[in-house]
Simulated scan of single mutants.
Amino acid sequence: MGICPFFFSYMMIMNKKLFTFDEIRQKLVSYCVYQDRCHAEVEQKMKEFLLIDEAKEEIVLYLLKENYLNEERFTRSYIRGKFYIKSWGKNKIKMNLKQKQITSKLIDTCFDEIDDNDYKKVIKKNYEDYYFKQIGLDDYQKKMKTIKFLINKGFEYNVILDVIEA
């Protein structure tokens, strides 16, 4: 059959250490196991290694086949983390996922990870926390400043108004 076309691209010089194709693949498996990754993050990580396109494709296919790389799982995990841990709103989460080259359709599908009641509770809690920290302002100024704060966290203006006027 002959020599595998990937053979010569499997080696890489990084800090004067050579890696075989299998070592590179294992490093990328470890990278994906540590936390869920999207395709763009894996592609970026592969730039550390001098691989030809065919070798990159083979690694990505392996990661997909073995379920180390799963875009939907990544998206769902990302949404949960950014909402429940960082208290980001949907707009900010969506913008950051688009920067990671996740499709709008997948993002919209995965937003069911955020419970509507939890979403409103987080808005209300953030609103109250921020509102009462404002000192020396009248109520209108506090309200406007707090709404701006929530918009910057990625919450939708109409949802904010619904929550604070309820």
Rank of each mutant, 00 (worst) to 15 (best):
F8H: 11
V29H: 04
I147P: 06
V42M: 01
A40C: 05
D53I: 08
S77L: 03
N91I: 10
A166C: 08
K148I: 10
T20F: 08
L18M: 13
K125E: 11
I160G: 07
T146D: 10
N70R: 07
L106V: 02
S30D: 14
T20M: 07
K94F: 15
V29Y: 04
Y157L: 13
Y127H: 04
M14S: 11
A166S: 12
E23Y: 07
N67K: 15
F155Q: 04
K121I: 06
Y34T: 00
K133P: 04
L61G: 08
K100P: 02
I107Q: 00
F74C: 00
F19W: 07
Y34V: 00
Y131H: 12
K142Y: 11
I160W: 14
E71H: 04
R76D: 01
D138K: 13
L18W: 12
Y62F: 15
D36S: 12
D112N: 13
F7G: 02
D53G: 08
N158A: 15
I107D: 00
K120S: 11
A40G: 01
M144V: 08
I59H: 05
K82I: 01
E54Y: 14
E72R: 07
A166D: 11
Y127M: 04
I102H: 02
L97Y: 05
T20H: 07
I164G: 02
E41F: 01
Y78R: 00
Y84N: 03
N91C: 12
N152C: 11
D112K: 10
G81K: 07
I85Y: 15
S30C: 09
Y84K: 03
E66Y: 10
H39Q: 06
R80D: 05
N96L: 13
A40I: 05
K105N: 08
Q141W: 12
E58V: 08
E156L: 14
L69E: 01
D116A: 14
E43G: 01
I160R: 11
G136R: 06
E66R: 10
Y131P: 04
I52K: 14
M14F: 12
N67Q: 14
T103N: 09
M95W: 15
R76P: 00
W88M: 09
I3W: 14
L61D: 14
F19I: 03
E128Q: 15
I102N: 03
Y10L: 12
L61F: 13
L61P: 03
K17Q: 13
Y84D: 01
D116N: 11
K133S: 13
K56W: 07
L161C: 03
S30V: 02
Y78F: 15
E41P: 00
L64F: 09
S9W: 09
E58K: 15
W88L: 08
Y127V: 02
H39S: 05
Q101T: 07
F111M: 06
L51K: 03
M12W: 11
Y62A: 07
Y127N: 00
K142E: 06
Q101V: 07
Y84F: 12
Y84Q: 01
T75G: 01
D139H: 13
H39K: 08
